[in-house]
Simulated assay, not measured.
Amino acid sequence: MEKARDCLELNEEESETVSRLTIHPHRVVGVDSSFYEDFALRGIRVDRVEPGLVSCTFKVPPRLTDNNGNLANGAIANLVDEVGGAVVYVEGLPMKVSVDMSISFVSSAKLDDELEITSRVLGQRGGYSGTIVLMRNKATGEVIAEGRHSLFGRQHSKM
Rank of each mutant, 00 (worst) to 15 (best):
K96N: 09
K96W: 00
V97M: 14
V97C: 09
V99I: 15
D100V: 01
D100L: 10
D100I: 03
S102W: 11
S102I: 01
S104P: 00
S104D: 12
S104Y: 04
S104C: 06
V106Y: 04
V106M: 11
V106W: 04
V106L: 12
S107C: 01
K110Y: 10
L111A: 06
D112R: 09
D112T: 00
D112I: 00
D113L: 01
D113P: 01
D113W: 02
E114N: 14
E116S: 11
T118A: 09
S119T: 01
S119L: 02
R120T: 10
V121W: 02
V121I: 06
L122K: 12
G123L: 13
Q124I: 12
R125N: 03
R125D: 03
G127M: 05
G127K: 08
Y128V: 15
G130P: 02
G130T: 07
T131R: 04
T131M: 06
I132L: 12
I132T: 14
I132Q: 15
V133P: 07
V133D: 11
V133H: 10
V133R: 10
L134K: 12
M135Q: 03
R136D: 02
R136K: 14
R136T: 02
N137I: 05
N137G: 02
K138L: 10
A139C: 13
T140I: 08
G141W: 10
G141Y: 10
E142F: 00
V143W: 04
V143K: 15
E146H: 05
E146Q: 11
E146Y: 03
E146L: 05
G147Q: 10
R148H: 13
H149L: 06
S150L: 07
S150T: 08
S150E: 08
L151N: 13
L151C: 10
G153W: 06
G153P: 06
Q155S: 07
H156Q: 15
S157H: 10
